[in-house]
């Protein structure tokens, strides 16, 4: 399965975006978007799966850089 995922950071329209990934995102996952790190908070199905593709939205929050 290939996961087409939209990453959304509430209040931040300048980060996130859409990409195809091989692994289903889960809450708690850390993702690197641009040069910042975010944590996946919630994953929802945006559209039903079609063929080998799943269509998801991952809501993220920014993780403070160390």
């Amino acid at each position: 399965m290939i996961y087409k995922v939209s990453f959304v950071v509430p209040g931040r329209r300048d980060v996130g975006g859409i990409q195809n990934i091989d692994r289903e995102p889960k809450p708690g996952d850390r993702v690197r978007i641009g040069n910042q790190t975010f944590e996946v908070v919630e994953v929802t199905e945006l559209m039903p799966p079609r063929g080998d593709f799943a269509y998801l939205n991952a809501t993220c929050k920014q993780v403070p850089e160390r």
């Binding site: 931040r12 329209r13 300048d14 980060v15 859409i18 990409q19 195809n20």
Partner: peptide
Amino acid sequence: KPELAGMLLVILGEGQ
């Protein structure tokens, strides 16, 4: 004015 992020319709990555 990069803060006008409404001008940024969407960000696309690999596979798009």
